[in-house]
Simulated assay, not measured.
Amino acid sequence: MTDTPDIPEPRVLSPRDEARVTFALEAERIGNEAFALLPIDPAAPHGDRLRRALALKAETDKLIGRAVIAEREEGATWTQIAEAAGTSKQAAHERWAGRVSAWAASGRTALPPDSRNTALGAARILDRVYAEHSHDNPAPDAVSSGLDAVRFPGAIAAEAARRERAAGLHARLSALHDQLSSLLEQHRLLSDGGARPQARAEVQARQSAVYAERAALYEELTAAEPELADEHRAEAETDRAFAADTREYAELLAAKSEDEAAKGSA
């Protein structure tokens, strides 16, 4: 490992490194589960081996999702991912884009914030695990040596600055999500209670404003997290469409309220 005494070891690595470590951790876990299938129990009930094999298959699906996330963080396009998966770009996007977006929203880290270990620490543990299993060609530091934090330690500060900017945007998005949930519940209660159109129109107008603000934040995220720009643009487009729809509905309700008021005064 490169000696860099003047550069403190990072608590959190770049999203690209974190995704790589996440994939490696999942691969190691599945490897252990597959190894556990080796013993043969002649007294096992019918279907036991099949159930265990199918359970392992479900776990490998998680590993595939982690692979897609790592590929996206490394700059692979959805076209390239589709080619590797032997499917169409649309099918690949529909299958895995949600996982990539969830990864982005959760902070793009391999371990939870309260973990005592770090991604770099986990990578070093995996180095030893790999060396123990690769007797013919025990590559030293097989996991950690491939991380940007080890290869390019001088980039740590820049990565931290990017992370801080993105974290601020995600925090604002989270607050808007809570605000939108509250507005949706308000509108439901008003509708169930037979509230006047004007009251519902006001809530819908506020919903439209929140959707528009979220769309703008997602556009900002395309610069803060360029590796996931496609996901953020898709979210922005969706929120812009919701903003337009709710605004139109609010205008219709407002017009209906005005008509009712005019009829009432006639």
Rank of each mutant, 00 (worst) to 15 (best):
G98I: 05
I69T: 06
A105I: 13
R66C: 12
R66N: 12
K89P: 05
A70T: 05
I81Q: 08
E73V: 00
T87N: 11
R95N: 08
K62N: 11
V100N: 05
T87E: 12
W96F: 15
A91C: 02
E73K: 00
V68I: 10
G86I: 13
G107C: 09
A84M: 04
A92W: 10
R95W: 07
G107L: 06
T79C: 00
V68P: 02
A104N: 06
H93R: 14
E71S: 14
V68Y: 00
A85V: 03
A67F: 11
A70W: 01
Q90A: 13
S106G: 13
A85Y: 08
G65R: 15
K62E: 10
T87M: 14
A91K: 11
T77A: 04
W103Y: 10
W78T: 03
S88P: 11
R99N: 14
V68H: 01
A67G: 15
R99E: 15
T87Y: 12
T87F: 12
G107W: 02
A70L: 04
A102V: 04
I64S: 09
R108V: 04
S106P: 02
A82W: 04
A85M: 12
A82L: 05
A67D: 12
R108T: 06
A84F: 01
I64L: 15
K89V: 14
A104C: 13
R99W: 11
T77W: 08
I64N: 08
Q90G: 07
A67E: 09
A84W: 03
V100M: 09
W96D: 01
R108W: 05
A85L: 15
V100Q: 04
T79H: 08
G107S: 07
R72I: 12
R108D: 04
W103A: 02
A97N: 12
W103D: 03
A91M: 05
E74P: 00
A104F: 03
L63E: 12
T77V: 09
R108P: 02
S101P: 00
Q90D: 14
G98M: 06
A102T: 13
G86R: 11
A105H: 10
W96N: 00
A102Q: 09
G75F: 03
T79L: 08
E83N: 14
R72H: 02
